[in-house]
């Protein structure tokens, strides 16, 4: 009798890319629902727009590259990229900007480099940074969480703003939009106000911005789920958060009037989402165990540097992209000590 041949190991595989990406998407759900809770329909509309654009863009490029689109779309990586990008966007961003960012992430940052596995930069962050530097006004026009403003936009209002580009009759931008806590902290510090004064504003909660800190908690829950499931390693989030807390704590200890409490950094902006979901994108991150510690720590450090002295209120996207560039070098200098090897540097 004759049989098919295959290479060892023969046992059925335990994991697939689709399942990995699907698990990450699942882990995003609690934080996403929290964002929906505080910021309304815009969050979901953005996610829907971004995903639809990403799928269409990926299918188009794959057809141009003469590859079958379906198996690639099934790996859900484009969905994940789009979702992460959408979470970073202001909830009322004009629709075409969301579409542009998502398409850029997939076409330029991912497919032009060869598709999944070959992109040197995190596609979602590349898309985000493109929008941030191109459309600074709309990209920094956030909503206040509805617990602060006391009003929430209806689905119809949100759709009107996103697709018409202006508030519905009877509303004005000033009434509905606000800066993010990070943005506000930054601009008020520049006016030489002290932290204690700044924090009297109703925008602030226990650690960071009201609402924002809870969103951070829910993303943290999803992130810990991923660590528990072995989808991501603890190294990047732990070293990234650790480094940020360490350096923020140091400056806070020196001068608490001009440097916010370290937990503020942690629960503001995209830090938790970035630490567990964005910096851990395996393709663009460092891949050696020690390298991941270095990579995460340097992102954490860079986040603090840019937030404190840089030109942008949030820094996760820039920090991740900068360290993406350094990842191959970090990998090169952080090999593992292999079994039976006496000296790490002996090759």
């Amino acid at each position: 009798m004759q049989f098919a041949l295959s290479s060892s190991p023969h046992l059925d595989k335990t994991q697939s890319v689709t399942r990995v990406m699907g698990t990450v998407l699942l882990a995003l759900v609690p934080g996403t629902l929290a964002m929906f809770w505080y910021f309304g329909w815009g969050v979901l509309i953005n996610i829907g727009l971004a995903i639809a654009t990403a799928m269409a863009a990926e299918a188009a490029v794959l057809i141009l590259r003469q590859r079958a689109p379906l198996p690639v779309l099934m790996d859900l990586s484009a969905v994940l990229t789009a979702w992460l990008l959408a979470l970073a966007l202001p909830p009322l961003l004009p629709w075409w900007q969301t579409v542009l960012g998502s398409a850029f992430a997939i076409v330029v940052a991912k497919q032009l480099f060869g598709g999944i596995g070959f992109n040197p930069f995190n596609p979602a962050m590349a898309g985000y940074v493109l929008l941030l530097v191109s459309f600074p006004v709309t990209m920094t026009r956030w909503l206040p969480p509805d617990i602060v403003s006391g009003t929430s936009l209806t689905l119809a209002d949100s759709l009107h703003i996103i697709f018409a580009g202006s508030p519905p009759p009877g509303m004005s931008w000033d009434a509905i939009s606000s800066a993010t806590p990070l943005d506000q902290m930054r601009s008020e510090l520049l006016q030489n106000r002290m932290i204690s004064e700044i924090r009297e504003s109703p925008l602030w909660g226990d650690f960071g911005g009201r609402g924002w800190e809870w969103i951070g908690n829910w993303f943290l829950l999803g992130g810990l789920f991923l660590v528990w499931r072995g989808i991501i390693s603890w190294r990047i989030p732990a070293s990234m958060i650790g480094a940020l807390l360490l350096v923020a704590g140091l400056f806070w200890a020196i001068d608490p009037d001009t440097h916010p409490f370290p937990a503020f950094h942690l629960f503001s902006g995209g830090m938790i989402l970035g630490a567990f979901f964005i910096a851990t994108d395996p393709v663009s991150a460092s891949t050696t165990p020690r390298g991941q510690l270095v990579y995460g720590a340097l992102i954490g450090l860079m986040v603090f540097v840019i937030r404190t002295w840089g030109g942008y209120p949030d820094a996760v996207a820039f920090s991740v992209l900068l360290l993406n560039m350094a990842a191959p070098t970090i990998d090169y200098y952080t090999p593992t000590r292999i079994f039976g090897q006496r000296d790490r540097h002996e090759t």
Binding site: V17, I116, S233, A285, T287
Partner: peptide, 9 residues
């Protein structure tokens, strides 16, 4: 076979 995503498993 799919491209390596460098997940480090």
């Amino acid at each position: 076979e799919r491209p390596c995503i460098r997940c480090g498993q």
